[in-house]
Design a protein around this nucleic acid. Sequence first.
DNA 1: GCAAGGTC
Length: 744
Amino acid sequence: MHLIIAEKHIAAKRIAAILAPSKTKQVRVSGVDTYEYESDEGKQIFIGLSGHIVKLDFPKAYNNWQKVEANELIGAEIITTSTQVKIVSALKKLGKEATRVTIATDYDREGELIGAEALEIIQKVNPEVVFDRVHYSAITPKAIDDAFSNPTNVDFNLADAGHSRQVIDLVWGASLTRYISLAAGRLGKMFLSVGRVQSPTLALIVEREKEREAFIPKPYWELSALLKSKTGEEFKAEHRTKRFWDKAEVDAAMEKLSIGDEALVTELTTSEKIDKPPTPFNTTEFISAASSIGFTAANSMRIAETLYTNGFISYPRTDNTVYPESLDLRAQIEIFKTGAFKQYALKLLEKKELVPTKGKKETTDHPPIFPASIAKKSEMNEQEWKLYEMVVRRFFATFADSAKWETIKSKFDISGEEFKANGARLVEPGWRWYYHYNAPEDRLLPKMEEGDKHTLTKLDMEAKETQPPGRYGQGRLIRIMEEMGLGTKATRHEIISKLYSRAYVHGNPLQPTKTAIAVVDTLEKFAPTISKPDMTSKLEADMDRIAEGNIPEENVLNESREMLEVVFTELGKNKDDITESLRAGLREDKIIGTCSQCSSNLMVMRSKRGSRFIGCEGYPDCNFSLPLPRSGQIIVTDKSCEEHGLYHIRIITPGKRPWNLGCPECNFIEWQKAQEEEKKNQNTDKERPKTLNDISGIGKVTAEKLADAGICSVDELCEADALELAKVTSIPVKKIKTWQSDIV
DNA sequence: GCAAGGTC
């Protein structure tokens, strides 16, 4: 029997369908669906994994954070445990019977490792089994047929390279996470995490925040003029000095100008601007585009996953921006000859040759993201449709012609001062007809010629200030992470989500908390290796050396462990400083503002019973306090209440939308009002019922039952023994008791 | 309770 192993279930199913001469048979093995058929070479069985089916961890003895020194993890044994029990047992069962195993996991480093993991499980039960490896970049009949007619060998060096990453990430991440958390006294749910990817990413955000804080705004002035043409059209022109840094200068210019002045057209240049079509979507480009129409990174990937599993789009986790040759692009467009995108598909299909654009990144993992099948709007929710439509339109746009803009640059002389106006008009929409997102608007100027004279109708001087660099939005951050080599297509959005759930950042664009700043400062000072993207670059270089067979994995691991030992020596030498600076940062995140009664700090505090509240540091002299919600992480934002001067509060609970509680004092006052309101309503609404029928829940039938038991008035009901009455009337005790307690 | 990487 020949066993073929793919990285995911759907891949196994689709590959089997392509290779099978007729229909495949679906067989359940240890709770896992497999696909099989008979051929000249015997029985062929296909099984899909679920990515990694094993994971690395430390033995249980290391589980206690307080009892095990963080640096003991450096040299600790690492064990492998299965995370997908059913799949592992199916692999063993099938592996025993197999005479040949083919690894058909994804064509990248992790794919090689995932395949090697599966192979190792099989070799334990069947040491002599023959095995090979196939490579494909798309699951199309052509690519799959080619791959399976040219099997190669499993690249254990490449798998080792991937394995070294796993070990290094675990050892560095776990040991430093524990060290920092212990030093800060943040154990349990509130631990402070550290990692090769998340820490440099957080450092980027912190660095930007510091630039913003250090930024000193510089004032400047802008001068613009409203001009009216002879035909009566008005348009705006700007002074050739875009920014006046000197008030005197702009005043001098103003002096020379007055309404009604002549504006002579001194120069007019028209030209054509070519606007090239966009390149195919890979994950980063997709997230970035989705982000620009209002989706968060994690959300757009979650939706892409749904679209993918329902067969609407191709695999969403890809680095590739070049369509592989094995993909029949015309056929892929023909799918849309009917339906919502009919007009676009038909227009494209008129082209004799379909030449797609190419991005800079060409990889072997998967094709770029393209629409896999046609969908109707009614088949999905609004958000899914929005992203699906974007993928379809982007796919079409990659085959479309360039857009053409007619641009006009004009210069004017107004009483000796030079003004400028630039216009642009889309003359040939090209790809922008297919893909209309973020389209710049036409800036129209009236028809004019050199020597024409307009009239100045309005002058506008505006005082402005230079702005600090903006905070990173999620789309931008994902892009920068990719540029710096941080994370992968499948993990970057998760890393960002992680920073939110650790309460390191809040808001979008991302703003770091004081805790995040303290953690980054500490790492940069005492363990800079983990806070810089260089660690990833070095790891990548080492992995390449392992993959090429130039160095054994063991050597890289040893070197890495030695480096980590050095880091821990440094941390050990500065233990007090570290604890001090971390706790100071943590403390700052708890400051809500100044107490209105005694001017001490108001802080997030914990009562002896463990509940949280806002208390005054002047306690016991001052006992001002405000309540806080019982659960969720409390984030103190930098926005403060105009009335009370307290920082606004946001509550985050994993898996839920963040709750902007706002000013805690306003919130409390509103809550009190609501309480009073409710009390009032209770007192006015609730008059004592006069007859039994006035009580809700007592109808004709029940009233009769009660009458049979001798209860005819409200008073009698109140005085009755609930238990006894329940027995006689067969009305539930609970009901009787509620009636009694509801009567005022 | 730790990381980052797969997949769902």
